[in-house]
């Protein structure tokens, strides 16, 4: 039997899990090293990322968000108990440091669609010089990311513990994805600063969300 793993937590007094998750199973705790892992038995060899499954994953993780310090696993993490123990033993120091980093914090999401820095490339140039066009587009994206990260960072300086900035450029206008790690007692102040920013930058689109488990502040290596 394999395990579907939801999150890793500090070994402390926690309430008994009662929210059903993947395959409608109630998760349980597994103690590994100095950590607790919230997991449930998983049968089968295939997992469909349907809306219901994704919501079930998030629902279980969030059921402990307010009462514990946790690190969420990515959706679809199915592993043997031996594999889980091996992973945690190999990464115990990194996981412990990540738990220290996120203690008392939540992740807040901010996505910014900015018209600034867009690269104008003519059809003729794109056809005649595809390499240059690609590099120009790449440079344009980096400029947008840097510029947006700069003014957003200035707006929340001193309030956020850490930021993670990346781009979503798969389709349509590029979007700058920013995750902020915010201490819970700074949340109201953070929201107020973002409100002000949104009112000031009427040329941009914003998408605000949270609080989330700290999905974007994981330091363990990204393995297949």
């Amino acid at each position: 039997m394999s395990l579907y793993v939801y999150c890793l937590m500090e070994n402390s007094e926690l309430s008994t899990p009662c929210v059903p998750g993947i395959q409608d199973r109630i998760p349980h705790f597994i103690k590994v090293e100095e950590f607790l892992v919230l997991a449930c038995d998983f049968s089968g060899s295939d997992l469909q990322p349907t809306k219901e499954m994704v919501l079930a994953h998030e629902r279980v993780v969030e059921s402990f968000l307010d009462t514990s310090t946790l690190l969420p696993f990515r959706f679809g993490s199915v592993v043997s108990e031996a594999g889980l123990r091996e992973f945690i033993q190999a990464n115990a120091a990194t996981l412990g440091a990540d738990l220290d980093k996120v203690r008392g914090c939540v992740e807040m999401g901010l996505k910014v669609m900015s018209p600034a820095g867009s690269t104008s490339i003519s059809d003729v140039e794109a056809a005649e010089r595809p390499g240059t066009t690609f590099l120009k587009a790449k440079l344009g994206l980096l400029q947008v990311q840097k510029e947006v990260a700069g003014w957003v960072g200035a707006a929340v300086a001193g309030i956020v513990r850490q930021s993670d900035v990346s781009m979503i450029s798969g389709a349509g206008q590029p979007i700058v994805r920013i995750a902020h790690l915010v201490l819970r007692y700074h949340l109201d102040e953070y929201k107020s600063h973002i409100d002000t920013l949104v009112q000031q930058r009427t040329d941009c689109g914003f998408l605000r969300s949270g609080p989330w488990p700290p999905y974007s502040f994981i330091s363990t290596p990204r393995v297949g």
């Binding site: 998983f42 060899s45 997992l47 469909q48 969420p72 993490s77 199915v78 994981i218």
Partner: peptide
């Protein structure tokens, strides 16, 4: 927002199953 977080971020552990797309 949920997909963006749970599919794209979090601890990645070598798994045993296939996620169907």
């Amino acid at each position: 927002e949920i997909l963006d977080h749970v599919l794209g971020k979090g601890i990645v552990i070598a798994g045993e199953i296939t996620i169907s797309v």
